[in-house]
Design a protein around this nucleic acid. Sequence first.
RNA 1: GGCCCCGUCGUCUAGCCAGGUUAGGACACCAGGUUUUCAUCCUGGUAACACGAGUUCGAAUCUCGUCGGGGUCACCA
Length: 560
Amino acid sequence: MSTREVVTRFAPSPTGHLHIGGVRTALFCWAWAKKNQGRFLLRVEDTDQARSSESSTRGILKDLAWLGIDWDEGPELADDEGVVLGGDPRSVGPFFQAKRLEIYTQHLNELIEKDCAYPAFDTAEELAELRSAAEAKKETFRYHRAEDYDRDDAIARMNAGESCVVRLRAPAQEIVVNDCVLGEVRFGAGELDDFVIRKADGYPTYHFAVVVDDELMGVTHVLRGQEHLMNTPRHQALQKVLGFGTPSYAHMPLIFNADGSKMSKRDKDKAARKACKAAGLKDSPVACIDDAEFTRWMGDKRSQLASDQLSWLGREMGVELPEIDVEDFRASGYVPEALCNYVALLGWNPGMKCEDGTDLERFSMAFLAEHFSLERIGKSNAKFDRAKLLSFNAHTLQTMEAGAFVSCWKDYLSLYQPEMLTRFDDSQFELLASMTQPRCKTLRDALEPISFVIAGDDEIVFDDKAVRKVLLKGEPSGLSFLAEIEPVLRAVEPFQADEIEEAIKAFCEAREIGMGKVAQPLRVAMTGLGVSPPLGQTLEILGQQAVLSRIDRCAAAHAT
RNA sequence: GGCCCCGUCGUCUAGCCAGGUUAGGACACCAGGUUUUCAUCCUGGUAACACGAGUUCGAAUCUCGUCGGGGUCACCA
């Protein structure tokens, strides 16, 4: 074994948001570096001038930081605690490929000189023609340099500034990829064609940039999705002619939707479009989409709206769009611990048992950093199971320390519902947190079990079924108990959960009735429903005055 | 279509490499129980080795074939 330091990298292209597949790749790269006390670096693959954007880069960095996937080298970003992630301690940057053009050019010229690469002048139309001709003959199109290619002439034309691409002369031998997950994968001689390594705009293609950067940045392990498997022989061919080493490769299984379709932002368009169709909308219901654009989008199933337009639309239509990107999951109230834990289980598992004999599935980032292994990465594709993720999220939330839950919830609210933070003081907030923490599955749902607190006393809507069952049925009726309990509650002092519970319990014992006889009518009076957090807390958070007023209002509304 | 990868409960998977398990777990689902309601929690249950050959005393595990699913075939990454 070489003693060389392990270096992994996550290399997103900044053309959109960080999605689930990217999370898993980043997480595994991170974990493998940690496991080996190596480095995890981040590199931005922005060689597609048209599609790359700075805001998308920022978004991806922010998402990774939120997830707890911190990088040792790469673009700098200050996290929530003010710790700066990234940097360039080994001087292997810059980490934006668009800033590395001279480096690529240097290696590229070398290849041209050795006649391992050559300029080509075909137009897009000519190439399309060749492709369709090959297809008509039921053959695979592979570009190869023409027999009568005039190298000197071509180089002269290139130097004269004529627009051209540079292609690699594909090796004729078989290429064997030794993959840590898949084993030996053989690609027959002649499978490769002369692929483009520099585009007409002067930027390297992905293949060329990746190979050069991985070498120069000392990357030892490339973990990526299986969709890249067919790229690997190209990369190895390039490494060979450039005189570079070949890193270890590990191609991970892919992640799909439950129905087997690709997880894509299109799913959001699809859900939103469906809702708009169901509502029979002709014009745009939101200001950020004009009617012409809306009509076009509705009519073209393949068209897509921008992310923020979609979220406005979703809110307006009252539909939940499927979460695709990290920020969707964050907005839906998922916490990074749960998300990372669940995603890590897609295509990997620790192969360990808990003390009770069940398989170990719930673990922290620290655990992953300690136990992650390449040989336990699976080979078969996985379907993303939202129900299981939700269960992980609920479990994480419910097992948090009370204080941790409060600060986590506050962070969430400050981002998505800041008005809630000013509405309650700290002690009220803590009480609310203790009421909702055991019953919420996501941070977004956290207001649900306590919505009766937010509603005004006279805004409580009584559920017919609950009223009939709890208030009207039985002899004596719930309504009569409500009347009897009012003076008891009026006398409770201080008006706090324990004291309230105590007083009600004493009342029930004196009357020789079960708690439910009084608790349920009170619940209906307070919330309109037969469901609420424990009664003491429910009454305490409302305060004595509101409790009495809600009892009165309930009694008045259902007096016969 | 060419090339490549994969195939264990509905889903994620353990077991496979070094053949012998009542094929285990988690989520979901169903049925009970605990709780003043809800949530939690507890107990139990339904449910899988894609198919066919071969090797073997014995195959989820090894071999071959069939079928099925997926990836990829750009001046995108």
